[in-house]
C-alpha cells in the first residue's frame, strides 16, 4: 500500500479509471473527502448554471428586477426573493441528487465488500476521487444543451433557450405564435438519468479486488458493481419526488 498525490489520483480517475482497479494505491481520508467536496461543489455549480433560475436571476440583474420572469408569457413576475431563493433551492436540489449518486456507490461498495473493510475503504476512496466524473457530466450537459439549442458559440443564449423551453414546453420566443410542442429533455430527471446510467460504468471498473476471502475474477467484480448500481438507481428513482425535483432544480 502506498499513498499517492491526490492530484495524480484524480488525474488517473479522470483519464483511466479502469487503472485504479489494478492498483493498491491509497488516498488519505482527508484528501478523499476534500476531493469529493471540491468535485461535487463544482458539479452542483455547473448544474445550477444550466437552470431556469439562473436565467431569471441573470435577467433581473442585467435588465431590471421587474423582468425576473419568463418574459412575454402569461406569468406574473416572480419576486426577487423567490428567484434568489429558488436559485439556492436549485443548488440544494442538485447537491441532494449528487449525494444520492454517492450514496448508491457507498451502498453497493458495502454489498460488494461486506466482509472486507480494507477493500471497502479503498472503494470509498475511489468513489470520492471518481466524483470528478460528476464535473465531466455537468460540463457535458451544458455542452449538449448548447448543441441542442444551436447556440454553441453563445452559451448564455443556450441557457435562455433551455429556460424558456423548460417553462413553456414549446419553442420560439412568442406564445402568440408558438413553435412545436416539445419537452425539454435536459431537465433534472433527464440529466440524472444519464448520470445514473453512465456513472456506474466508470465507477464499477475502478472497484478494487477483494483483499481477503474468495478471490473473484475482475470481470465478475465489475459486473456485480454495475448490476447492483443500476438496481439501486432503479429503486432510488422510484422513491424520488421527480415533479418537485424538476421544479426546484429548474
Amino acid at each position: 500500500m502506498s499513498f499517492v498525490s491526490p492530484l495524480a489520483f484524480a488525474a488517473r480517475a479522470l483519464l483511466s479509471p479502469w487503472s485504479l482497479g489494478h492498483r493498491s494505491e491509497r488516498l488519505s481520508a482527508f484528501a478523499a473527502i476534500s476531493l469529493a467536496g471540491i468535485f461535487v461543489t463544482a458539479a452542483v455549480a455547473l448544474s445550477t448554471l444550466l437552470s431556469t433560475w439562473t436565467y431569471l436571476a441573470g435577467k433581473g440583474l442585467l435588465v431590471s428586477i421587474g423582468e425576473m420572469d419568463m418574459g412575454r408569457d402569461d406569468l406574473p413576475a416572480d419576486s426577487v426573493s423567490q428567484v434568489l431563493g429558488a436559485l439556492a433551492g436549485s443548488a440544494i436540489t442538485w447537491t441532494c441528487l449528487l449525494a444520492v449518486a454517492v450514496f448508491v456507490c457507498v451502498a453497493v461498495a458495502d454489498a460488494l465488500y461486506h466482509h472486507d473493510r480494507e477493500a471497502w475503504r479503498m472503494a470509498i476512496e475511489r468513489t470520492s476521487v471518481l466524483t470528478i466524473w460528476f464535473v465531466v457530466w455537468a460540463l457535458l450537459m451544458i455542452a449538449a444543451n448548447s448543441v441542442r439549442q444551436g447556440e454553441v458559440r453563445h452559451p448564455a443564449a443556450a441557457i435562455r433557450a433551455y429556460a424558456q423551453l423548460n417553462q413553456r414546453w414549446f419553442r420560439g420566443p412568442s406564445a402568440e405564435n408558438p413553435g412545436p410542442i416539445e419537452r425539454e429533455p435536459l431537465v433534472a430527471h433527464g440529466r440524472v438519468r444519464i448520470l445514473a446510467i453512465a456513472f456506474p460504468l466508470v465507477w464499477s471498473v475502478a472497484m478494487p479486488q477483494p483483499t481477503r476471502g474468495r478471490r473473484r475474477a475482475r470481470a465478475v467484480i465489475v459486473l456485480l458493481a454495475l448490476t447492483l448500481s443500476w438496481l439501486a438507481w432503479a429503486a432510488a428513482w422510484r422513491l424520488l419526488p421527480w415533479v418537485a425535483i424538476d421544479a426546484f432544480a429548474g
Binding site: T52, L56, D69, M70, L75, P76, A77, D78, Q82, V83, A86, Q167, A234, A235, A236, W237, R238, L239, P241, W242, V243, A244, D246, A247, F248
Partner: peptide, 28 residues
C-alpha cells in the same frame, strides 16, 4: 420500499405546495 413507494406521492404533493406561491413554478 421502491416497489410499494409508501407516502412518496403525498410527500411530493407536500413539496409542491410551495410552488403555489411562485408563478414560474405553477406548472408543477
Amino acid at each position: 420500499l421502491a416497489i410499494v413507494r409508501p407516502g412518496v406521492d403525498a410527500f411530493e404533493r407536500r413539496l409542491v405546495d410551495v410552488c403555489w406561491n411562485i408563478p414560474s413554478e405553477w406548472n408543477a
